[in-house]
């Protein structure tokens, strides 16, 4: 049987999904630990992309830039937590919504002012080749970005599951009060979670620069997908984000091909609605 472009579509969908996963993991982590929906998540992606672009301008290899940017973004996240999010958490619940949304507007405006609205791509990118497996074409850059995202997601998962601070994070997300009574430093852990979440999206931004271009409004293009992924996979679940992201990537690419490119997000949102109706906590979510 001739399956036509199906294998290619599946591969493209998975690689697309892996990047969505890394973007979404940070979002779900932050939500899981401190119940904060970070509306400015996409803007941190944008900042990381500019940071990567800047790093390559001074001669750093884009692959080496991934950990560097992730670490820088970790500290930026921790600072943002200390300066802004901590104060917002002390206010009414809507304070967090408006606060992070305000951060979105601010970061977008600042980027527009500082970097102008020009588009930036890394010049002389590595991995420009394409691998051929039968009928399947695999862009090297796309492959590297996808594998990098998978690796980073796995690292975050291992950290949360198997390390002492990871356990503390999970304890916090399960029962805040009990965790506090057990002597877990809530502020410290919150800062860690926020930093970690931003580091994830930072790594995603750096990897994204292998196949994408940076501009001030790029964050919003990916943030919406990230929210769908997180809701689909289950708020607060790292594995859920991975599963949700792969599903979204596959449905988007397959739907785009077999239905219509202009309508490719419709199956994604339908799937999301279906899951929310049948399983409101998301595919792998608790509660």
């Amino acid at each position: 049987m001739d399956v036509g472009p199906l294998p290619q579509l599946v591969v493209s969908g998975i690689l697309t999904g892996l990047l969505f996963a890394l973007i979404s993991v940070g979002l779900t982590l932050i939500f899981g630990v401190m119940d904060v929906v970070n509306f400015a998540h996409g803007e941190f992606l944008m900042l990381a992309m500019y940071a990567t672009f800047g790093a390559t301008l001074i001669g750093i290899n884009p692959i080496l830039a991934v950990p560097v940017v992730a670490i820088v973004m970790f500290f930026l996240g921790a600072v943002v937590y200390r300066v802004l999010i901590r104060r917002l958490l002390a206010g009414p619940p809507s304070a967090v919504v408006f606060g992070t949304f305000g951060l979105l507007v601010f970061l977008q405006g600042a980027a527009q002012y500082l970097f102008t609205s020009d588009y930036r791509s890394i010049p002389n990118l590595p991995f420009q080749g394409t691998l051929h497996f039968g009928a399947v074409n695999l862009g090297e850059a796309q492959l590297v970005a996808g594998l990098g995202a998978l690796l980073m997601t796995a690292l975050v998962f291992a950290f949360v599951e198997y390390t002492e601070p990871g356990r503390a994070l999970r304890a916090l997300s399960e029962d805040r009060v009990a965790a506090q009574l057990m002597g877990i430093d809530v502020q410290g852990m919150n800062a860690l979670a926020f930093g970690l979440g931003i580091a994830c999206v930072g790594a995603a931004g750096a990897l994204l620069m292998l196949t994408y271009q940076a501009y001030p409004r790029i964050g919003t293009e990916f943030a919406l997908t990230a929210f769908v992924v997180v809701a689909l996979g289950g708020f607060g679940s790292v594995q859920g984000a991975l599963v949700g992201a792969l599903l979204v990537g596959l449905v988007e690419v397959l739907g785009g091909f077999y239905i219509s490119p202009a309508l490719k997000m419709i199956p994604v949102y339908l799937l999301y609605l279906l899951v929310v109706l049948v399983r409101p906590q998301g595919l792998l979510g608790r509660r």
């Binding site: 290619q8 579509l9 493209s12 969908g13 293009e221 997908t225 785009g256 091909f257 490119p261 202009a262």
Partner: peptide, 13 residues
């Protein structure tokens, strides 16, 4: 849709 974040399926078409 011009605001697509990837155009994999488009290019396959």
């Amino acid at each position: 849709a011009a605001n697509a974040s990837e155009v994999q399926s488009e290019v396959q078409k």
